[in-house]
Simulated scan of single mutants.
Amino acid sequence: MAACGAMDYERATREFLDAGMQVFQVAMLAKNEAEHCRVLFDLFQPTGTVVDLGCGIGGVGHAFKQMAPELTVIGVTNSELQVSHALPGVDVRLADMAQTGLPDACADVVMFCESFGYAPARRLLDEAYRLLKPGGRLCIKDFGFRAHDKTIGLCEERWGYQVHDPEALTLYAEQAGFKAVRQWRRLPADFSRWHRFMDGYSGSDEHRHPSHGPNICAAVYIYRKPEAQEDGPRLTMREALRGDEDAIAFCDLLYRVLHVWDDIVDGDKPLTDSDVNGAFRAALVDLPMNRFFRKHADTLVPILSAGITAWEVSNVFERSDDRELWRKAHMLRVHVGAVFVMCAELVGGREWATQVAPSMYDLVQGDTLAQYLDEMERKHAA
């Protein structure tokens, strides 16, 4: 854990070190740090050059080096104090996790160990994709929840840490160009060490960590950057929008609103107050004030309206028992992708939009027809 959100993590680092900690994590997968890192090693299967984003003092990388001396481990933290206490065998550097300054395609593995929620997911995924060699793996160890729990919102509100819904995280990763490999969404975890530390931490009254809920656990996600020859060139959303920050921000806000809207209508995924409040603020404040949207509203609004209508019709078809209507529903749900393609046309012209449209529609439609039909079967069976 490279930072502690609202916590004064320079002070916290000193107290971690005074408490004998080298691995600054909350959800422990074993009874001590060495065994915890062994479990992570078995899950991550690190090879070659490993970049640990949000590395703390390099505790995990140091343990990995002891298990596999041939590894090269580079750590990134935004704490000068943590850099000054870096453990042997780990090249710990002072930098922003989302803008590391490391070379392109320098890593075989990029990992986040309870650090992924401290910065916008899209920026971190784009940076991880840039750092990884083709075929490299992205490994994220984070928090999970067995059921809806108020501590999901507390992680963000009290601790400045966002825990992502697994489906949303995977869709974000796929939009960044990754392929999902494996997920462990509900790993048993021991929080007792952290609770003991927080009982003695001098800032515990102001920053009590929201890890006391009965449903909290750990989660691990593994993604892979495709080999170049696997399915031809595939652009990320940032590449398709040619790095236009206002256009990227608009698409990110729009996706967030549509995703929460869909979850509200479906009623099959837990949403926190923070999720709902964030989506409505994005729709009512952030989107209307976005410079790209304000400039191109006359072009974008009719396309967005048609896409929303198509989505509403798809929800009607989903309630039917007719599999042919489910197929049409799957087709209609991708219609909103026309908004994102138009954004590409507005930043790069018609020929550019035609070139990138296949990648953009592929990013917007997160599941295959077979996966979608299987989901419909399960919903109707339930």
Results as ranks from 00 to 15, higher is better:
residue 168 A to V: 10
residue 192 S to T: 14
residue 196 R to M: 04
residue 179 K to N: 04
residue 214 P to W: 12
residue 212 H to K: 09
residue 162 Q to W: 10
residue 174 E to F: 01
residue 229 Q to V: 11
residue 209 H to Y: 04
residue 177 G to W: 03
residue 232 G to W: 13
residue 195 H to L: 08
residue 226 P to H: 06
residue 230 E to F: 08
residue 190 D to M: 09
residue 180 A to C: 14
residue 195 H to C: 04
residue 219 A to P: 03
residue 213 G to A: 13
residue 224 R to L: 01
residue 168 A to M: 14
residue 173 A to G: 05
residue 209 H to W: 01
residue 172 Y to P: 03
residue 159 W to V: 06
residue 193 R to I: 08
residue 240 A to N: 07
residue 165 D to W: 14
residue 213 G to F: 07
residue 177 G to K: 04
residue 197 F to C: 11
residue 228 A to E: 15
residue 188 P to G: 01
residue 199 D to C: 09
residue 182 R to K: 12
residue 199 D to V: 11
residue 176 A to W: 07
residue 166 P to G: 00
residue 183 Q to A: 07
residue 218 A to W: 13
residue 233 P to T: 05
residue 195 H to S: 00
residue 205 D to W: 09
residue 231 D to E: 15
residue 214 P to Y: 13
residue 212 H to W: 13
residue 188 P to R: 15
residue 170 T to A: 00
residue 160 G to C: 05
residue 223 Y to I: 04
residue 227 E to G: 01
residue 164 H to T: 04
residue 172 Y to N: 03
residue 169 L to H: 11
residue 174 E to R: 07
residue 234 R to V: 04
residue 200 G to N: 14
residue 217 C to I: 09
residue 188 P to W: 13
residue 227 E to W: 10
residue 239 E to Q: 15
residue 159 W to G: 09
residue 180 A to D: 08
residue 160 G to A: 05
residue 183 Q to G: 06
residue 210 P to F: 04
residue 207 H to S: 01
residue 228 A to N: 08
residue 191 F to S: 02
residue 161 Y to V: 10
residue 179 K to I: 06
residue 167 E to K: 03
residue 188 P to A: 03
residue 162 Q to Y: 11
residue 192 S to F: 01
residue 196 R to D: 07
residue 234 R to P: 00
residue 166 P to Q: 03
residue 236 T to A: 06
residue 179 K to E: 08
residue 177 G to S: 04
residue 166 P to V: 06
residue 240 A to E: 10
residue 190 D to K: 14
residue 170 T to H: 00
residue 208 R to E: 06
